[in-house]
């Protein structure tokens, strides 16, 4: 069920401000694609344009094409809400719903859409999603406790469970480990490895080692100069990117000589 994503000539705006310019890339199905680059170069912006979360911000818009298995996401007939159901997202800061229990958080995607789910099916879905997020054994005895009561790393895995409970085909993650300690980080990295067999995963990270560890392909974003829009400098298999990048700027960034 995982899908590939084709991006062509994508320009992304906040009002009149062009934040990201001319991106072309193909994200392969059932693989992990990582985006790296200095802050403010538009990684989050680009990621959010892949499931039409970008337009949630007033005045935000895009030009160009994002095609998921032959269907253009920005086609006028396409419902952004339906897009987001198929392309899930995990955010930088864990954000479980504070009014809901762990159980309800996992089911939020269904419950908030007023889908009737049978109790037995719901239980099964919660268990499956929490297992999928490697959280089941830690929380199975306190499913009715508030999601806010978990540790940061657990909260983030709860958010992942919540995202995969909707059974999306693509999972976007925006610096999912940046607010977490090293142990939680490695738990999430392990999880990403496991999820890759079922989902297409796109992850933004600030941490070069993390990109090298988890991803199959890597895209390097950069600003030409301050005030200029961000753009995709290089997109290659991760191995090549970290050993013999095509572009000097990429090499400079990866070896830590800049950014």
């Amino acid at each position: 069920m995982a899908k590939s994503i084709d991006v062509s000539d994508l320009n992304i705006y906040y009002g009149d401000f062009l934040a990201v310019e001319g991106v072309n890339m193909t994200v392969k199905a059932r693989s992990v694609t990582a985006f790296i680059g200095p802050s403010g170069c538009g990684k989050s912006t680009f990621l959010r344009s892949l499931n039409r979360m970008h337009e949630v911000i007033p005045g935000a818009r895009v030009e160009g094409k994002v095609v998921v298995d032959g269907q253009s996401l920005y086609d006028p007939s396409v419902d952004p809400v339906a897009v987001r159901r198929q392309i899930g997202m995990v955010f930088q800061r864990p954000n479980p719903f504070p009014t809901m229990s762990i159980y309800d958080n996992v089911l939020a995607g269904k419950r908030l859409n007023a889908k009737k789910v049978k109790k037995s099916e719901a239980d099964a879905l919660v268990e499956k999603s929490l297992r999928g997020a490697n959280l089941w054994s830690e929380v199975k005895d306190r499913l009715d406790k508030p999601g806010m009561g978990l540790s940061g790393g657990q909260q983030q895995r709860l958010c992942i469970a919540r995202a995969i409970a909707v059974e999306p085909e693509v999972l976007l993650m925006d610096e999912p480990c940046s607010a977490l300690d090293p142990i939680s980080t490695s738990a999430i990295e392990d999880l990403i490895h496991e999820l890759k067999s079922d989902y297409t995963i796109v992850i933004v990270t600030h941490n070069m080692q993390q990109a090298a560890r988890v991803s199959d392909d890597t895209g390097f974003f950069n600003l030409k100069a301050t005030g200029e829009p961000g753009h995709l400098v290089e997109f290659n298999p991760t191995k090549k990117m970290f050993t013999a990048p095509d572009n000097d700027a990429t090499e400079a960034y990866i070896s830590g000589r800049f950014g």
Binding site: R85, G88, F91, N95, P96, T99, G109, L112, V166
Partner: peptide, 24 residues
């Protein structure tokens, strides 16, 4: 964040307001 979390689950805006924003 909470609104975005809800949107990212494919929940329409009006349901997000009624089920996430108002209860919170």
């Amino acid at each position: 964040d909470l609104r975005e979390a809800s949107y990212a689950l494919g929940v329409p805006k009006w349901r997000t307001i009624l089920k996430v924003v108002v209860p919170t």
